[in-house]
Simulated assay, not measured.
Amino acid sequence: MTTQKIPINTSIVSGVALSEIDGEMKMLLMKRVKGGYWCHVAGSIEGQEKGWQAIVRECFEETQITVSELYNAQFLEQFFEANVNVIQIIPVFVVLCPPNQPITLNEEHTEYRWVGLDEAKALVPFPGQRQVYDHVWTYFVDNAPSTQMKVNIS
């Protein structure tokens, strides 16, 4: 009998954008066209891109945010995609935006909201997303991020 394995996909990255909105720190959530659920920025690594380059590109494509301050969140988002039998392992980045960051969505999303932690966790459908937001909030909002996690994007 041959043992089957579940493939692991590591070709996707994600990023949580943070901005001080009207004096309060908030994170950006967007409602996807495909699936109709709330999420943060994510996308595939293309060509010879590094993970950090992919999230910088994806942020701009999905939101028109020009990333100037990027951090490795030191968190791996992971889930099993049952319909295609693949384990997704996704490095998470944090984009620190200037106050009142404007957003222009592309065709992948129908709407966006800048939200606090509790609202973000109430909006999203997946437990892994809630874990990402708890981690990001703890290490980037409640505490100053470590300079060791800053990504040099120049």
Score class of each variant (00 low, 15 high):
D142Y: 11
G116M: 03
T147H: 11
Q129L: 14
P127C: 07
D118Y: 12
F79W: 15
E20V: 13
I87C: 05
F140E: 01
I6K: 08
E119R: 11
H40C: 12
P145K: 10
L117C: 10
H135T: 11
I153R: 06
G47Y: 07
G15V: 05
T147V: 08
Q129C: 08
I45W: 04
I103G: 01
D142S: 13
K26G: 00
I87T: 14
P91V: 01
N106P: 07
D22T: 09
V13Y: 04
F75H: 13
F126W: 15
Q129E: 10
Y139E: 13
Q148E: 14
V86D: 07
V92H: 01
P125I: 14
T3I: 15
T110F: 08
A144C: 00
V141E: 06
T104V: 15
L105H: 05
P7M: 11
A73T: 05
H109W: 13
G43P: 08
K34G: 00
V56I: 15
V141P: 10
V67S: 02
G43F: 05
F93L: 01
A144S: 09
V86K: 09
M149R: 14
I89W: 04
Q53F: 03
F80D: 10
E24R: 09
V16G: 03
G36D: 01
V13C: 10
R57E: 10
S44Q: 14
I8S: 09
Q78C: 12
R32P: 00
P127F: 12
A120Q: 10
R32K: 11
G47S: 09
Q64V: 09
F60M: 09
V16E: 01
V92A: 00
F75V: 08
N143D: 08
I45A: 05
Y37T: 10
P91C: 02
C59A: 15
V16M: 05
V95Y: 04
P7C: 11
G43R: 09
Y37L: 02
T66W: 09
N143M: 07
W114N: 02
W137S: 01
E46Y: 06
V136C: 06
N106M: 07
Q88S: 11
G23T: 02
S68D: 11
A144F: 06
A73C: 06
E20W: 03
G128V: 04
L29E: 01
T10Y: 04
Q129I: 06
V13I: 15
N85K: 05
E49D: 13
A17G: 03
L70M: 08
V124T: 15
Y139V: 02
V86C: 10
G128E: 03
E20N: 11
V151P: 01
I21C: 02
R130E: 00
L29R: 04
E24Y: 03
P125K: 14
E111M: 12
G116T: 12
K31M: 00
E20F: 06
I65S: 04
V16T: 12
E61H: 12
R32N: 00
Q131E: 10
K26E: 00
I89E: 14
F60S: 07
G15H: 05
G51I: 03
M1R: 14
E81S: 07
K26H: 04
V115Q: 03
E49L: 07
K34L: 00
K31S: 00
L123D: 02
L29N: 03
G15W: 06
P98L: 09
N9G: 09
M30K: 13
T110G: 12
V16I: 15
